[in-house]
Simulated scan of single mutants.
Amino acid sequence: MARILVTGGSGKLGRAVLRDLVAHGNSVLNLDQAPPQEAICPSVKIDLSDFGEVAAAVMGGIDERGGPFDAVVHLAAIPAPGLAANARTFTNNVSATYNIFEACRLAGIKNVVFASSETVLGLPFDTPPPYAPVDEEYFPRPESAYSLGKLVDETMAAQFCRWDPELRMVGLRFSNVMYPEDYAAFPKFDSDPNARKWNLWGYIDARDGAQAVRRAILADFKGFEAFIIANADSVMSRSSASLLAEVFPGVEQKGNISTNSTLLSVEKAKRMLGYSPQYSWRHQ
């Protein structure tokens, strides 16, 4: 049993992460400004912009909620572009991530997983991607304050790992998070292929997102790595190759693209994390 600290466990993906970690026998503490919708594990209200509060929590200094912690999962953030003023989104998200990373450094925690985002790949792809399926091989192309902040998070993680060769930090570039109740809306996407081109028709079932977090915690490499985390298929009934041909006709198609396969490559996550998507909106 590991002791795991999670930030943002009250959010859409966070709830699934808490459930998965607890179900696999871990002792979990949630840190969030918002109260949890269900009592999955103990939860503490915290302001992640306050380094003193963050350091106290990470170092086990909250009464009755002490550590030490084996791993930290940082999910808390303003979760998308356009929900707050750009400067607020950037400042809130980047400072919270720095506070978590620095507190982990001071506490000697060597295992950190954090939520990056598919947006660093160039979403909403007003400028087409260099090729498809997209992967982690090309340098990020942030197109919003939100995605710029996620790139800063990844850059910080790489430098924290340079400072400490024993540290592992994993940035998970999650696609658009969905629950089974969201799948009723998927069939209407077929009527307009441009409606979901902004993320190459991708998504991530929250339960598979939680699986990726758990596998990242258990990974056995050192240093920083970023991984795209998406489901194995697209949100569309049409073939992925035909979608690319219509909406992104000049984009190179790399390798064999099966009928409905994701255009957000998860091959690196499969190879290095053992990630294997289990869910699909097609088979609920």
Score class of each variant (00 low, 15 high):
Ala241Leu: 06
Gly122Asp: 04
Thr91Phe: 13
Pro140Val: 06
Pro187Trp: 07
Gln37Asn: 13
Leu31Met: 08
Val112Gln: 01
Gly8Phe: 00
Arg3Tyr: 01
Asp192Met: 12
Ala2Thr: 14
Leu172Trp: 01
Asn92Gly: 05
Ala39Thr: 14
Pro128Phe: 09
Leu121Lys: 12
Glu102Gln: 15
Arg162Ala: 12
Glu166Lys: 13
Tyr275Lys: 04
Glu154Val: 07
Phe186Lys: 02
Ser43Ile: 05
Ser175His: 03
Glu102Ala: 12
Glu118Asp: 14
Asp50Ile: 06
Lys12Ala: 15
Arg88Asn: 06
Thr89Asp: 00
Phe224Tyr: 15
Tyr183Ala: 06
Pro81Gly: 05
Val113Tyr: 01
Leu148Gln: 02
Glu118Gln: 15
Asp47Leu: 04
Gln33Pro: 10
Leu244Asn: 04
Ala85Met: 14
Ser242Cys: 13
Ser280Phe: 07
Leu75Pro: 01
Ala185Pro: 07
Ile78Trp: 02
Ala84Phe: 07
Ile40Ala: 05
Pro42Gly: 11
Val17Ile: 13
Leu167Gln: 04
Met169Thr: 03
Asp153Leu: 02
Lys222Ile: 09
Met236Thr: 11
Gly171Asn: 02
Met272Pro: 06
Ala55Leu: 10
Ala184Asn: 11
Val120Gln: 01
Asn231Glu: 02
Phe189Asn: 10
Asp20Pro: 11
Asn93Thr: 06
Asp20Val: 08
Asn86Ser: 15
Gly108Met: 10
Asp164Phe: 05
Leu263His: 03
Asn30Gly: 07
Leu123Arg: 13
Glu118Lys: 15
Glu246Cys: 09
Ala107Leu: 10
Pro128Ala: 07
Thr91Ile: 15
His74Leu: 11
Met178Val: 13
Glu267Gly: 12
